[in-house]
Amino acid sequence: MQTRRDLLKSSAGIALAASAMTALPSVVFARAPVVGRQAASFYRLKLGSYEITALSDGTVKLPMSKIYRNIAEQDAEAYLTNHFQSGESETSVNAFLVNTGDRLVLIDAGTGDLLGPALGKLVANIEASGYKTAQIDHVILTHIHADHSGGLVIDGKRVFENAILHVNAREAEFWLKADAAAKADKVLGPQVAQAEKCVGPYVEAGKFETFGDNAAPIPGFGSVLHAGHTPGHSGIIVESEGEKIIFWGDIAHGAVLQYDQPEVTVDFDVDQKEAAKARAIAFADAADRKYLVAGAHHAFPGIGHVRRDETNYEWVPLVYKATY
């Protein structure tokens, strides 16, 4: 026979069970599709009175051990494996927007639709960062390879409709005035055609200017010629209130192997020997003078310092700041 005490105990147990059940997460709410992408990829920092926004064009998997030169493929792969980058390494494509307060200057322009759906995110990230392409006053290219100039046009029209495009003079000469032999070359020919397609609309619109070696692309912005990767490959120098950054372009592909072995080059270098020399000079200067550098193919946001270490050099990424 059930007593009053038994009934109370039973009721308490039922209440406790009910309470516990309501506290459990809903199985339905726990199910959600995997997103598979990051948040909008932009990152801001201050340089003196300027604001710099690093912008991602996306990342792409590349078999870097097959792309590196002046090193055996198995040695490159062993090195990358030791740095958790074996197989196909995730490679960033970065561009950078400088807001001086008076004007907006974009350095490099991403890939556009030239290199597949994993890339071509630059315009979306410009807009996510709070700007519009029509607001950009100047675009300065470190060089005219597809991953730096492909985003200049879409469907033959200028993406940066109000911007003047600036390129080193010898870079423009090499790609835009190529001779018949270069155009017929299996490697250079397609790159020449791509350069004409992407830069041509700015030339036709009267929105194209060149600058000399180590000269200012626009007032307040400097350049340093680092020829080799391409003939006019140039770092772009920005300084404000005693602070300095150099936008390196393709001085380095990745942030590990070439810092230990600057003599290692890549397939994409037009002049392998000169590219290695330029990298050695750039590394030494950045390490000695301790200014910020920004790399087009360092892991996003691609900004940091170079320091000497026991093996040669080391890339030191900028410490993340939520505010500045």
Rank of each mutant, 00 (worst) to 15 (best):
V224S: 04
A195T: 11
E51K: 04
K157W: 10
A32D: 15
A322L: 12
W248I: 01
G112T: 05
G235T: 00
P219G: 08
V35K: 14
V293R: 00
R69N: 11
D108P: 04
A276T: 11
V28N: 10
R307H: 08
N99K: 03
V159Y: 06
C198N: 15
S240Q: 03
V105E: 03
N82K: 15
G212H: 07
Y313M: 00
D260E: 07
N214T: 11
G150S: 11
G130P: 03
F221V: 06
A15T: 01
E263K: 13
N162E: 02
R44Y: 06
E88A: 14
E171Q: 10
G87F: 03
L318F: 04
A181M: 11
I236P: 01
V264R: 01
S49D: 15
D6Q: 15
D285Q: 07
F84W: 13
K197Q: 14
V60P: 04
G58V: 10
E243G: 00
F221I: 05
Q85V: 11
C198L: 12
V123I: 13
D108N: 11
N162H: 12
V264T: 04
T111Q: 05
H305R: 07
F208C: 10
V98D: 02
R31N: 13
A118W: 07
G212E: 12
H83Y: 09
D57L: 11
L122E: 09
Y68K: 03
G249I: 06
D185R: 09
V153H: 02
N162L: 10
